[in-house]
């Protein structure tokens, strides 16, 4: 049994079927990058894993919890699934420190003092120890995204989901965010990353999944998918982006 197990997943908005029969498994400690053209359904798939999108049919199991079962306490499961968004979604009315300590304290995972210590450690880890008392409005995009990663890590999750974490960044800031993610991967975090950074995917991913038109078209080790893609849609996509 993998950390994340997706079986026969379908997702439609009205008559528009965005995900068509997805089967996928992520093992503990595995880093999976999902690539593919816009509208291929890769972000929707990621958002189905922590139920930000309701699944239409099929099953999503994370940490042995069946997320697609309405009886599952989704809040409990989400505590173990960190998520990082394309647009950061930091809470603008809270300081950087409060952004990070807010959920652990609110959910009684940690005392105020413990949460503060953890937060400072995490900020140090993402290179922003001096920004604890700043407000998100005064940070650059790259700094915001690093705080967002720290915020997700503060809940001590088993799995981290990244939804195009560098797409909204100026090019010179992409590196600092990818650096933090690379460190995280090397520490053994289970990660599912939707990304357009092919170089990063090639370097960091244990497995690359190529999606198109709501299907997983091809998946495998980075060297195989990037080096000798089998499917013609993969080939034509990679020709355009590489």
């Amino acid at each position: 049994m993998g950390k994340v197990q997706i079986s026969n997943l379908k997702k439609s908005y009205g008559s528009n079927e965005v995900l068509k029969d997805i089967n996928m498994k992520i093992d503990e400690g595995e880093v999976v990058c999902v690539i593919g053209p816009s509208g291929s359904g890769k972000s929707t798939l990621l958002r189905c894993v922590n139920k930000l999108e309701e699944v239409t049919a099929g099953e999503v199991i994370v940490d042995d919890y069946n997320i697609s079962d309405p009886k599952t306490d989704i809040n409990k499961v989400r505590e173990n699934i960190g998520m990082v968004f394309q647009h950061f979604n930091l809470f603008p009315h809270m300081s950087v420190l409060k952004n990070i300590t807010f959920a652990p304290v609110e959910l009684k995972k940690q005392s105020e003092k413990e949460a503060r210590e953890t937060a400072l450690k995490l900020l140090d880890r993402v290179g922003l120890a001096d920004k604890a008392d700043a407000f998100p409005g005064s940070l650059s995009g790259g700094q915001k995204q690093r705080v967002a990663i720290a915020r997700a890590l503060a809940m001590n999750p088993d799995v981290m989901l990244f939804d195009e974490p560098t797409s909204a960044l100026d090019p010179e800031m992409v590196g600092e965010v990818l650096g933090v993610m690379k460190d995280l991967a090397s520490e053994g975090m289970t990660m599912m990353i939707v990304t357009h950074e092919m170089g990063f995917a090639r370097e960091v991913a244990d497995r690359v999944v190529f999606m198109d038109g709501g299907y997983i078209v091809e998946e495998g080790e980075p060297e195989q998918v990037f080096g000798s893609p089998k499917h013609e849609r993969t080939i034509s996509f990679l020709e355009k982006v590489l």
Binding site: L52, N75, K76, E79, F85, N89, F91, A103, L107, A152
Partner: peptide, 17 residues
């Protein structure tokens, strides 16, 4: 922004909180 609610919910907070 819808992302604010999503970010809060993804941390495990209830809709109410």
């Amino acid at each position: 922004d819808k992302g604010q609610l999503e970010a809060a919910r993804s941390l495990g907070l209830s809709h109410r909180t």
